[in-house]
């Protein structure tokens, strides 16, 4: 028990003293997760809207595929992206292996099905009277889309939060595609795994606390937006 308390005390010291190694991992995590979330939301919300709102042949089958992809293991995504961006892979020339954009690409694949599936559910769950109301007030196609998304905004925010939580806490993609390179591609989760292996509990706990603080900050921000 002592080593945990000692580790926590040291962790707080590392954080308040501005330890560069710790903050490098924090910066890397925020960078890749921001890229991944921006890409997955930009693609996922329109696709989720289409899946939830439109009727088309093969919709059920597509929904089944998207729901299945919710269970994608991060190590499998890491392996897949690694195969594509490694030197002999089809995207090898882009030099994405062991880079933050490489990790972001993998994390986008992880977040995308979550955003699509939960956005589609959010759209499906909007009141049946919404479409009639929007149309009856004169909404065209564009306003029908924006009005529906706005009405489902809380559920879509929840989808984004769920995806963000998964992206922030994954290890497999960051480790395999990023390579856990100090000062470069080391993220909070890969750093925790490494430091724990080395017996450096203080750094691990410090990074874990940062992860919790970020999650708290994001949720507090979303909660504030909901009240607005």
């Amino acid at each position: 028990m002592d080593f945990i308390l000692q580790g926590t005390a040291q962790a707080l010291e590392l954080l308040f003293s501005g330890d560069p190694e710790t903050y490098s991992a924090v910066a890397a995590t925020l960078t890749v997760s921001s890229y991944a979330m921006a890409a997955s939301l930009a693609m996922g919300i329109p696709l989720g809207f289409a899946l939830g709102h439109l009727e088309f042949a093969g919709k059920r089958q597509m929904r089944l595929v998207v729901d299945t992809l919710l269970s994608l293991p991060t190590v499998f995504i890491g392996l897949l992206v690694y195969a594509f961006v490694s030197r002999q892979g089809p995207l090898g020339e882009m030099g994405l292996l062991f880079t933050l954009p490489g990790i972001a690409m993998g994390q986008t694949i992880l977040a995308l099905p979550i955003v699509i599936a939960l956005s589609a559910t959010a759209i499906e769950n909007t009141d049946a009277g919404l479409r009639t109301t929007l149309l009856s007030l004169g909404a065209g196609r564009r306003h029908l889309v924006t009005g529906t998304l706005w009405e489902a905004r809380h559920a879509i925010l929840a989808a984004a939060l769920t995806a963000y939580g998964r992206v922030m806490t994954e290890v497999g993609i960051s480790m395999m595609v990023g390579g856990n390179i100090k000062w470069h591609t080391r993220t909070i989760t890969t750093a925790i795994a490494l430091e724990t292996g080395k017996g450096q509990f203080a750094t691990g706990i410090a990074l874990g606390l940062v992860l919790l603080a970020i999650a708290f900050g994001v949720n507090a921000g979303v909660s504030f937006l909901r009240r607005k």
Binding site: G129, L135, S136, G138, W150, E151
Partner: peptide
């Protein structure tokens, strides 16, 4: 759009936007 801007419908179930 031209016609729909002239017409308004009050549906049977009054749904209000959030």
């Amino acid at each position: 759009g031209q016609i729909r801007n002239k017409v308004a419908l009050l549906p049977q179930q009054s749904f209000l936007l959030k």
